[in-house]
């Protein structure tokens, strides 16, 4: 299932595609992912001209607009290095939907296919390309992991996040009810069907909290935006000053736990 590729066993250079959500809303997660990769001896290249993978338009039914934005990203990664994406959802778009998106444009299609083969979701890259065995330096702690639907079903990388956390000696990974169920984000779905999306995130946050974990970690900032946004809203509703469910990107958690 996961994209293990023998071609580049221990890459020295990678491109980092941050995603527009990380760039604008979770820049700390992006920094942490980059720092973590650098600590593992990787030279991280951040193409300044990157914007967005195009997924918002694509899933909303506007493939032409998605294609325009995607076409721009195709030009950003000239060297044959892996492209690491700290989001299963955006990685899924680039890996699985770019070739379809450019099906009718042979030149771009070839580019898209070549790029697709180099796209890695961050945790997949850490586990399957770097074979990273994190050394835990923190104290006892219980976390709960939320894996995005794209990471799970499109990228097939739902085991890698768990594996990384499982390698941390003093971290207990709690198991939530209905773990594989969507958090209800779904991009424009959350705006177009707020009642259903709201019910889904409500149930998701309840299940995460019910584990008693100190925090939720996820490799997808879209889900985090939704989950943490609802948890904070609920805290405000119920007059709690401290967040009842803090959370962060898995890169931030891993970086902190493995700090020397």
């Amino acid at each position: 299932m996961s994209s293990v590729q023998p071609a580049t066993p221990h890459p020295t250079d990678i491109y980092f595609f941050a995603t527009c959500v990380v760039d604008q809303f979770f820049p700390g997660a992006g920094m942490d992912a980059i720092t973590l990769l650098e600590r593992l001896g990787i030279r991280v290249h951040f193409p300044e001209e990157q914007t967005c993978c195009g997924q918002p338009a694509y899933t909303s039914g506007f493939p032409d607009e998605a294609r325009k934005v995607a076409a721009h990203q195709l030009t950003l990664f000239p060297n044959d290095w892996p492209v690491v994406v700290p989001s299963g959802s955006c990685a899924g778009m680039m890996k699985h939907h770019y070739p379809t998106l450019f099906a009718a444009d042979p030149a771009r299609r070839a580019q898209a296919e070549a790029l697709s083969a180099r796209i890695y979701e961050l945790t997949d890259f850490l586990v399957n390309l770097l074979d990273w065995q994190p050394q835990d330096t923190g104290g006892e702690c219980t976390v709960v992991l939320h894996t995005s639907c794209s990471a799970r079903r499109e990228m097939g990388v739902h085991l890698t996040g768990r594996k990384l956390l499982g390698g941390l000696g003093k971290v207990t990974v709690a198991q939530q009810d209905h773990e594989s169920e969507c958090c209800g984000f779904g991009g424009t779905f959350s705006i177009k069907q707020p009642e259903i999306s709201g019910a889904m995130v409500e149930d998701k946050v309840k299940a995460l909290k019910a584990t008693g974990a100190e925090r939720v970690v996820s490799a997808d900032c879209g889900c985090l935006m939704n989950i943490l946004g609802h948890a904070a809203w609920k805290d405000a509703q119920e007059g709690r000053a401290q967040p009842s469910l803090p959370g962060e990107h898995i890169a931030s958690f891993l970086l902190r736990r493995t700090a020397r």
């Binding site: 604008q24 939704n226 904070a232 809203w233 609920k234």
Partner: peptide
């Protein structure tokens, strides 16, 4: 619709590229 059950979205003061 976003804020019916969530806190509002606010871009971070610095983008990743600024950092």
């Amino acid at each position: 619709p976003w804020t019916t059950v969530r806190t509002p979205l606010k871009p971070a003061p610095k983008r990743l590229r600024d950092m």
